[in-house]
């Protein structure tokens, strides 16, 4: 749970910056920031599950 928490904090803080510096209206930037946040989490979960099934040990 600790990893999930810090990954979410990381995604949130990075998404804030990406959303703020993006171009467009306030609404567009808010949507972009939320999209970036969701993409961070989605990619992390997807990679996590892919690595889980790979016989790396």
């Amino acid at each position: 749970m600790r990893h999930l928490f810090w990954m979410t904090v990381f995604a949130g803080l990075t998404a804030i910056v990406f959303g703020v510096v993006a171009k467009g209206s306030d609404r567009q930037r808010l949507v972009y920031g939320l999209k970036v946040f969701g993409e961070f989490l989605f990619v992390a979960f997807a990679l996590g599950w892919i690595l889980y099934f790979l016989p790396l040990r």
Binding site: M7, F10, T14, V20
Partner: peptide
């Protein structure tokens, strides 16, 4: 995680600086 946070803090400040 700490390393990544420290690295990315600097990188996003470059973005903020350009903004």
């Amino acid at each position: 995680y700490g390393n990544t946070f420290l690295l990315v803090a600097g990188l996003i400040n470059y973005l903020a600086m350009l903004d």
